[in-house]
Design a protein around this nucleic acid. Structure first.
Length: 402
RNA sequence: GGAGGGAUGCCCGAGUCUGGUCAAUGGGAGCAGACUGUAAAUCUGCCGGCGAAUGCCUACGGGGGUUCGAAUCCUCCUCCCUCCA
């Protein structure tokens, strides 16, 4: 590949790059570039949102560049303001260590983790000292800090902004100095931080890193960005069936968005699929199944993906029972004349978190025993081994009396 | 340092002047049901906990108080915001 082709391959689908010219110049040097990616020390469960920049990192890696993961253990102790309206909880050192290990294990599903450099930023930040920190802070101004959209929004909304939040971009910028980053990649929410890093690097007489950001993946709810705390995520480590199901439940509207960011078809391919759907050549459900198949395959292999699809079609299209169901054991001595209170049954098997919730589900008609709806919350139902308890569309359990 | 405003359920936000009828109006999110393609849209119900139930417990930033009774009144504390310096 020529440097120009490499450029296109690497950042062709990025939403912002500062600057393409600089990256091209760096690629022409012919040496392995140092590609920085800041790993969140508080989110050990990676989801598809994380996979977007990571898939791009893999491309860098395939072209012989050096990927550097920065575990923000130091910054994790401060709390990260990026794109959120609330400061994060602080984490303990052991917690961070454990998270970093899960991170590496999960990231390894996307790229070659053994070829990555994994660094903790406490390595250089602990030794910085208060004078070092103040000197670092003197390299930037409050006015420039306030340019950040998140800060101005929070000022307007009268929500507090802590001073440490001003420090965070600086410290993160210092990471780039410490590892001599050539390129930093991440989501668009990181753009501000990346650009601060460019300024800070310049002030250290270093060549500024190239900042490349990709659109944030929208969550399964179709509106907010994918995040664990919003519960709209598909985890990389999730079981094939879960993954497949979650992907099938996304809104049609975001289907092209998912294709573009999560598969190799690219923006053009995603657009083509969208056109086929518009012209009714392709059923949206079919397009969604293909997408789910591709993604499950990436994390679990072709066989598991095929199985997940078959299972999905059986359970949700044809209304059959799942091939595997968790067993719910009931002690015979807890039964009266072979009967159990339906509310207890639903709560005990874990389908409801409280009796009140179980009552609601029952009243709402969401509970079935052997395919028969039970809507009386006071019912004492006869149970025996092999009975199937269903709560909502997705929860099934096989009852075992012992 | 001074002056003023505020803190309510997952989130937003009424209620506070004129104490009880407040588990607390309304919206959003969420859950279940109907319709479907486990899509969207729409419609219906639910939406603190425990109880078969009259009911009981916990909850309106925290403590103390007034009262038969407090989200609502008094008091101290904590935190946030705005303006001035």
């Amino acid at each position: 590949m020529t440097p120009e082709q490499q450029l296109e391959h690497l950042i062709g689908d990025a939403s912002e790059v500062h600057t393409r010219e600089e990256l091209l110049a760096k690629l022409k040097l012919g040496r392995p570039l140092r590609i920085k990616y800041g790993a969140d020390p508080s989110a050990p469960d990676l989801h598809l949102g994380h996979s977007v920049p990571m898939m791009r990192l893999r491309r860098f890696q395939e072209l012989g560049h050096q990927v550097i993961f920065i575990i923000g253990d130091f910054t994790g102790r401060i709390g990260d303001p990026s794109g959120r309206s609330r400061t994060r909880p602080m984490l303990s050192q052991e917690q961070i260590k454990r998270n970093a290990e899960t991170f590496a294990a999960q990231a390894g599903k996307i790229l070659d983790i053994s070829a990555c450099e994994i660094r903790y930023n406490s390595e250089w930040l602990d030794g910085l000292g208060s004078d070092g920190l103040i000197k670092l802070a003197s390299r930037y101004t409050v006015a420039r800090m306030l340019e950040r959209d998140d800060f101005s929004r929070r000022m307007a909304a009268e929500t507090p902004i802590s001073i440490v939040e001003f420090l965070y971009p600086l410290v993160q910028a210092y990471d780039s100095v410490a590892v001599a980053a050539d390129v930093e990649v991440g989501g668009t929410d990181q753009l501000f931080n990346f650009l601060v890093a460019r300024d800070i690097m310049r002030s250290y007489d270093m060549e500024p890193q190239v900042a490349a950001t990709w659109t944030l993946l929208v969550g399964t709810d179709g509106t907010e960005k994918m995040s664990k705390s919003l519960g709209n995520y598909v985890g990389i480590a999730e079981a094939p069936a879960e993954m497949f199901g979650k992907l099938m439940s996304i809104s049609d509207d975001i289907l092209p968005h998912y294709y573009a960011l999560l598969t190799d078809v690219g923006f053009d391919g995603a657009e083509r699929i969208d056109r086929q759907i518009q012209s009714r050549e392709l059923h949206p459900m079919e397009a969604k199944k293909r997408l789910a198949r591709i993604i499950v395959e990436r994390y679990h292999g072709a066989e598991a993906a095929a199985q997940a699809q078959a299972e999905f079609e059986a359970v949700f299209s044809r209304g059959e029972l799942p091939s595997e169901m968790p067993e719910h054991r009931v002690a015979a001595c807890d039964l009266e004349d072979g009967r159990a209170w339906i509310v207890r049954l639903v709560t005990d098997c874990g389908a409801a978190s409280s009796n009140s919730e179980a009552r609601r589900l029952i009243r709402g008609g969401g509970v079935r025993l052997n395919d028969e709806r039970i809507d009386d919350e006071t019912a004492n139902v006869e149970v025996s081994t092999g009975d199937i308890l269903q709560v909502g569309k997705r929860y099934f359990a096989k009852i075992v009396v012992e």
